[in-house]
């Protein structure tokens, strides 16, 4: 029994492995991009729009609203990163309904890659918002004693992100596989449905947590900017 799609290797050259995870990710990328392009190539700016455009707009607006709700006042700036995180994880998880499909998010490598992306994105957005000094100072909050705890927290939450997603998706897929071998009818179907739900929730959790981390990193700077604005 294969736990991770990383284990299925198509091509190998030294350090490089072309495994199922990467291939599926490519396929997903093509699917997402092609879908987006097909729908957005003739977007209508009129009041009446096509059905697909409506779905897409609803999705994009939902993501934007969520980002805004968490506390980022300029959601368009973070839209690309957080939206893509959500869409990629959600689509990747939802497609588990397709037979023989193995979600790339069931690979710890993928979830680690995504967690590292968040880990890097948080300081990048934080520095972009308020400068490096302001960002680094946030590690000394509320005082310098908290510095090691802040650093530990930063690393541990990244780890948690990666493992949580991986665990959930991998276990979902694994349970379905195990159940199919034990009780071939009916029960695996329920588990698959549950898997869809879990997948969706995980995508949401991952994206929301990423947003919260970014918001935490940028909020100080944003608050200072607002105070400055009010003063001036």
């Amino acid at each position: 029994m294969r736990i991770s799609p990383d284990e299925m290797i198509f091509w190998e050259y030294g350090f490089m492995h072309l495994n199922l995870t990467i291939v599926t990710t490519w396929a997903l990328m093509i699917l997402l991009t092609l879908g987006a392009w097909l729908i957005t190539r003739n977007l209508k700016k009129e009041i009446k729009t096509t059905r697909w455009q409506n779905v897409l707009e609803m999705l994009v607006l939902m993501i934007r609203d969520q980002i805004k709700e968490v506390g980022l006042s300029k959601p368009d700036k973070y839209m690309g990163f957080i939206g893509t995180l959500f869409l990629f994880i959600a689509v990747s998880n939802l497609l588990t309904i397709v037979p023989w499909y193995e979600a790339p998010t069931a690979s710890l490598s993928t979830t680690t890659a995504l967690a590292i992306s968040v880990f890097i994105a948080v300081p990048v957005f934080g520095i972009a918002q308020g400068g490096i000094k302001s960002y680094l100072r946030s590690y000394l909050q509320p005082n310098f004693i908290m510095l090691p705890f802040n650093i530990i927290s930063e690393i541990s939450r990244t780890l948690a992100l990666a493992v949580r997603l991986f665990g959930n998706i991998m276990s979902g897929g694994l349970i379905a596989t195990v159940l199919i071998s034990i009780v071939p009818f009916f029960f695996p179907m329920i588990m698959s449905a549950l898997g869809l739900l879990t997948g969706m929730i995980q995508a949401y959790i991952f994206a929301i947590l990423a947003t919260v981390y970014i918001a935490a990193a940028t909020q100080d700077a944003e608050r200072k900017k607002e105070v400055k604005k009010v003063k001036s």
């Binding site: 990328m29 997402l32 991009t33 987006a36 392009w37 957005t40 977007l43 209508k44 700016k45 729009t49 455009q53 897409l56 707009e57 994009v60 934007r64 368009d76 839209m79 690309g80 990163f81 939206g83 893509t84 869409l87 990629f88």
Partner: peptide, 16 residues
């Protein structure tokens, strides 16, 4: 993917 979606999804949709 972030770049592609930004280019083909978010930007045109938000503009629209």
């Amino acid at each position: 993917l972030v770049y592609l979606l930004k280019r083909f999804l978010y930007k045109p949709v938000l503009e629209a």
